[in-house]
Amino acid sequence: MTSHRMPAGSDPARPGPDHPLTIWVDGEPVPGTAGQTIAGVLLGAGRRQWRTTSQDGAPRGVFCGIGVCFDCVVEVNGLRDVRACLRRAQDGDVVARQGAGPEATP
């Protein structure tokens, strides 16, 4: 696993107890903690790509991390084009890969 959430025990910020949650990504459960964004949950669980580009079929995940680049968009609970780096995860969120990228091409 490459990207990962820092273990609370070794975190100098001394976080309080976690409130675990689970989101469902393409049918698989992915554990996270309350307050994380969807991108935070995915990266924290070692997943780095969750979109396929329309032109080259290339994998993408987070690039800018602050809502500017739209690389990280996913479908959340049936709604497309949600920036995963901005949206806080809710327990039970159903997240699906967007094959064709953001629906921006007329």
């Binding site: 990962h4 959430r5 820092m6 964004t37 935070g40 990266l43 924290g44």
Partner: peptide
């Protein structure tokens, strides 16, 4: 904002 490291 997440306490996530992007890599090792």
């Amino acid at each position: 904002g997440e306490r996530v490291a992007v890599g090792r």
